[in-house]
């Protein structure tokens, strides 16, 4: 389980301390044990409900509309470079 939590944290891009890892491992075991009660419920032939409102593909016109200014869009940037979001070198 510990290896698994490590792997999940990697997938979710969350750095965890050893102490957090141990705590989460315990919590996860307890929670998964609790939710395993669902196994006992017969669901053969039951459709899943992903969403309670039966709607699909709400379309709109592909039209340019007013949007945020560059300044507003960048106002919360942790780091910026001119009119760009600054990030560490990727390649």
């Amino acid at each position: 389980m510990k290896q698994q939590v490590k792997y999940l944290a990697e997938l979710a891009r969350i750095a965890l301390t050893e102490q957090e890892l141990a705590g989460l491992e315990q919590d996860l075991e307890k929670i998964l044990d609790y939710v395993s009660q669902l196994e006992k419920i017969e669901t053969t032939g039951v459709e899943p409900t992903y969403h309670v409102v039966p709607m699909t593909n709400v379309w709109r016109q592909d039209k340019v509309e007013a949007s945020l200014s560059t300044e507003k869009a960048l106002a919360n940037a942790p780091e910026r470079h001119g009119n760009f979001f600054k990030v560490p070198r990727v390649i």
């Binding site: 419920i41 039951v46 459709e47 899943p48 409900t49």
Partner: peptide, 15 residues
Amino acid sequence: EAYYLKAQRVRTLIR
């Protein structure tokens, strides 16, 4: 399937 899909099916039963 064992968790997410199963939960969505039981959700139908609850509904």
